[in-house]
Design a protein around this nucleic acid. Structure first.
Lengths: 238, 238
DNA sequence: TCAAACTAAATTGTCGACAATTTTGAAATG
DNA sequence: CATTTCAAAATTGTCGACAATTTAGTTTGA
């Protein structure tokens, strides 16, 4: 197993670092980010037990530092912890996925409502551009690429940010979207909806541009609800 | 400053502990709970810097253990952390309170919708009983007691649990409600609504009993939205 | 006097070791 | 053979110390 941290830090910056270097990062934070990705992508299997000594060796850090990272992952909903037992990767299930859809339906619906009030013309233009890019890429590639790739989530992200509600942004972007991505990676999302999704996204943008918050909310809720129904249908036929 | 932990643990349980003793608790967990209460009630002022050495001495634990507790508080949204700077108690503001209302409006609306589908007759009866109790107490005490005290939140809690959506329950009960209580303690919630709130709660229960999820959701959203508007109005007149 | 530079103190980040608890698995019992 | 008991091993919880970074205070220089 490869060492992930060089023994000595190479120092060649005798000159003051670039003034706006905002990346004040700590080992725990780095490991947190790394682990998050490995969990989302399933390299560390869902439901698997976390061995602190083993992971600490893997990253060549102490257990204390690792635990710092693990506690953040628990906050992100990717790990669960039991006293005196330890951490375990969250277990995915269809039932939990349906619950997640319900929560997204409600939160993103609200985000969309607020986005209609708060997004600037520039932001909306940016959103349209994003969607156009995705459509262009989609035209080239095969059917289910859009849903699988980050494209769809980019769109949802931008709207959530457009809500300008910091709490909403934190809940969705820092806690729930990593779970969403985890489901997409490991369940491979349902995507007979690839084409319909574009239309729905277009309609949502239009409602936002018209400053019609109530419509925008309804459209977003239907958009997410449709995905949920898709999963429910699939679940019942199996 | 008083020591909060006795030097020696008194051992008088030579017999096996009660079989269903599920309270496996750790020092970090205990301190977490204690700190949470002190923060919510404002004993540790909002916005104040957390001194790890000082708090560790106060609870007579090591910094590692304290940090475990602090990281959980960050997960609960009561502390904020900056790398190399440390933890700080969240700062409350009217703007953030309005954001919180928006999130509650959306999540509790959904919870209410689901509760109408999932609550059993027994649960609904329990809910009615709770409300009746509150009304009885309210009749005795002065006007604004209901809102101030835990009564109102009890009602909301029960509905959230009635949703049977574990994710929703976790988000609302573990992450957001402590913030809500913190605002009530430290801002002293607006309560010309004390009487109206009872009526609204009754109507919500009725909709749930009728299994009319859509109405239940709308009523809950209006109920919370009314509180938000109250705060907005007050904000504009100052 | 004010601001920049430097030094000392305090705070957070990280480490390794020990204690408490759980898990493993072998031995004992029926 | 299945179940229980018990001891050893492994894992998590907790501790205190050191390193890295930030903060406070003092000195210096214009």
């Amino acid at each position: 197993m490869t060492k992930l941290r060089p023994k000595f830090k190479i120092v060649d910056n005798m000159m003051p670092a670039p003034v706006s270097n905002l990346k004040v990062t700590t080992r725990a934070e780095t490991v947190f980010t790394g682990l998050r990705q490995r969990i989302v992508e399933g390299e560390i299997a869902m439901g698997s037990k976390i061995s602190e000594p083993e992971l600490a060796r893997y990253y060549d850090i102490s257990r204390s530092t690792l635990r710092d990272a693990l506690s953040r992952l628990e906050g992100s909903g990717l790990l669960e912890r039991k006293a005196n037992i330890g951490y375990r990767v969250v277990t995915l299930s269809t039932e939990k996925l349906l619950e997640l859809f319900r929560v997204r339906e409600s939160l993103e619906g609200m985000a969309c409502y607020l986005a209609a009030q708060n997004m600037t013309a520039a932001q909306i233009a940016e959103l349209r551009e994003l969607l156009a890019d995705h459509e262009k890429n989609e035209a080239l590639q095969q059917g289910e690429a859009y849903f699988q790739k980050a494209g769809d989530l980019d769109f949802h992200f931008k709207i959530v940010f457009g809500s300008a509600n910091q709490l909403l942004i934190r809940l969705l972007c820092e806690e729930l979207y990593y779970l969403v991505r985890m489901y997409r990676f490991q369940f491979g999302m349902a995507s007979p909806r690839a084409k319909k999704a574009f239309t729905e996204h277009h309609n949502i943008i239009q409602a936002i541009e018209d400053k019609d918050g109530e419509l925008a909310e309804i459209l977003m809720r239907r958009h997410i609800s449709a995905s949920r129904l898709n999963v429910e249908k699939r679940m019942n036929t199996l």
